[in-house]
Amino acid sequence: MLGAFLVGLGAVFITIGTVGLIRFPDLYSRLHALAKVDNVGLGCIALGLMLEAPSVSIALKIGAIWLLTLVSSASLAYIIASSKYKEDPHAH
């Protein structure tokens, strides 16, 4: 029951992040929507799936996937923002 609720909550957060990606006007706002809201959504989904996992091994694998996604998302957001800033530092 709690697992299904967390998965649904995660889907809501990801939907909000996707709407932000489409509606926000500039790159930095879009990156914020992706790096923050989608990571919370993924965290809720991962936690919900971990609670419903049939074994501890599978739950730990889901947790590892979530952690790797958090690290890669933050790194990629930084790289994209940094390259845009170096391209045109007066645009922000």
Rank of each mutant, 00 (worst) to 15 (best):
L51D: 13
L51C: 10
L51Q: 14
L51N: 10
E52W: 09
E52V: 09
E52H: 09
A53I: 00
A53P: 00
A53W: 00
A53Y: 01
A53D: 01
A53G: 00
P54G: 08
P54V: 10
P54R: 09
P54Y: 02
S55V: 07
S55R: 06
S55D: 08
S55L: 01
S55Q: 07
S55G: 07
V56W: 13
V56G: 04
V56I: 06
S57L: 12
S57Y: 15
I58G: 01
I58N: 03
I58F: 10
I58P: 03
A59P: 05
A59T: 02
A59Y: 00
A59S: 04
A59H: 01
L60G: 00
L60N: 01
L60A: 08
L60T: 02
L60C: 01
K61G: 01
I62W: 04
I62A: 05
I62Q: 02
I62R: 05
G63T: 03
G63P: 02
G63I: 03
G63R: 03
A64C: 00
A64W: 03
A64N: 00
A64V: 01
A64P: 03
A64D: 01
I65G: 05
I65N: 09
I65R: 07
W66S: 12
W66R: 06
W66P: 06
W66G: 04
W66A: 15
W66E: 09
L67A: 13
L67E: 11
L67P: 03
L68K: 02
L68I: 10
L68D: 03
L68N: 05
T69C: 08
T69K: 09
T69D: 11
T69Y: 14
V71D: 10
V71R: 09
V71G: 15
V71L: 11
V71W: 07
S72A: 12
S72W: 14
S72T: 06
S72N: 14
S72R: 09
S72M: 15
S73H: 04
S73E: 15
S73P: 07
S73W: 11
A74F: 15
A74V: 05
S75D: 03
S75G: 09
S75C: 12
S75W: 15
S75P: 10
S75I: 12
S75A: 14
L76K: 12
L76F: 15
L76E: 06
L76T: 14
L76D: 09
L76P: 04
A77Y: 05
A77I: 04
A77E: 06
A77K: 06
Y78H: 11
Y78S: 04
Y78R: 07
I79H: 09
I79D: 11
I79L: 12
I79K: 13
I80E: 05
I80S: 04
I80G: 11
A81L: 12
A81R: 11
A81V: 05
A81I: 04
S82G: 14
S82F: 13
S82E: 11
S82P: 06
S82I: 05
S83M: 10
K84H: 07
K84G: 08
K84V: 10
K84P: 09
Y85R: 14
Y85H: 13
Y85V: 06
Y85E: 14
Y85L: 11
Y85D: 10
K86N: 11
K86H: 12
K86D: 03
K86W: 07
E87G: 01
E87R: 03
D88G: 14
D88R: 14
D88Y: 10
